[in-house]
Amino acid sequence: MKNVTVVFFLALALLLGIAACSDQTETPPHSEHSNAGETTTGQPDGEQSNREQPSGEQVKELDISYVKENLKQGLSQDEVKKLFGDKFTKVKSAMDNTDMWRYDFGAREGYQSPDDQYDTVDVEGIKNGELEMIVFVGWTIDGRVDTFSAYYMKKSDGNVYDYRVLPNGEVKEQAI
């Protein structure tokens, strides 16, 4: 685990270094819409919440490959924020009512999720191009990634896919 953490931080530092050297300015992959509600504390402790303000450290390009390569079980909340930024919505898992973070990536201006309370997937929004990907992150009691899922459209077949890592580490990916 120590070696994985070292490699992760080296890769992150390299990516940040490359991004800092770039002359291009790009819009972060996070949606720019505001969300009614309270600001999150970033803690999976059951407090009311909704969206945090972006930290400035955000991914330049984000797709399913980035999620598969970088989001791992055991990461801390701060590490997830470094990967995806601070702009998330705190929701509950419909299965067990635990706290989760939802990231809406590539959302059009004005996009509003149909459900800011539970881990509901806006399949129609992804199909219609209102947003590119939804990522849900579930937490352990001590604030580490336990499970996660990403919903995205594969342009090659036009289907929305569910990529998920279960608490036991099993990986599943299927069209929904």
Score class of each variant (00 low, 15 high):
173 E>R: 04
7 V>A: 15
108 R>C: 06
116 D>T: 10
109 E>I: 13
1 M>C: 11
158 G>D: 07
158 G>Q: 06
132 E>G: 08
99 D>Q: 10
25 T>Y: 09
68 K>L: 04
60 K>W: 08
18 I>G: 07
57 E>G: 07
76 S>G: 09
78 D>C: 04
45 D>E: 14
132 E>R: 11
114 P>K: 09
134 I>A: 02
108 R>G: 08
10 L>Q: 13
18 I>C: 09
8 F>Y: 15
150 A>Q: 02
137 V>P: 01
127 K>I: 05
94 A>E: 14
41 T>Q: 13
160 V>Y: 01
157 D>R: 05
161 Y>T: 03
103 Y>I: 03
71 L>Q: 04
115 D>C: 08
128 N>P: 02
53 Q>M: 09
101 W>K: 04
87 K>W: 06
40 T>M: 10
95 M>P: 08
38 E>A: 13
31 S>M: 08
96 D>Y: 11
36 A>G: 07
118 Y>W: 12
141 I>R: 15
79 E>N: 05
110 G>M: 09
135 V>D: 00
1 M>K: 10
72 K>G: 04
22 S>F: 04
150 A>W: 01
116 D>G: 15
62 L>K: 00
76 S>W: 06
101 W>I: 03
163 Y>K: 03
123 V>Q: 06
113 S>T: 10
125 G>T: 00
23 D>K: 15
45 D>Q: 13
33 H>T: 09
45 D>N: 15
165 V>E: 02
101 W>A: 10
173 E>Y: 04
143 G>T: 03
84 F>I: 00
35 N>Q: 10
84 F>H: 00
36 A>D: 11
24 Q>G: 07
127 K>R: 12
140 T>E: 05
23 D>F: 12
64 I>A: 04
6 V>F: 14
96 D>K: 11
170 E>G: 07
125 G>K: 01
132 E>Y: 04
173 E>G: 04
59 V>Q: 10
39 T>A: 14
89 T>S: 14
3 N>P: 07
1 M>E: 13
170 E>C: 06
34 S>T: 09
22 S>R: 07
62 L>I: 12
107 A>W: 00
30 H>P: 01
65 S>N: 15
158 G>L: 05
69 E>K: 15
123 V>I: 15
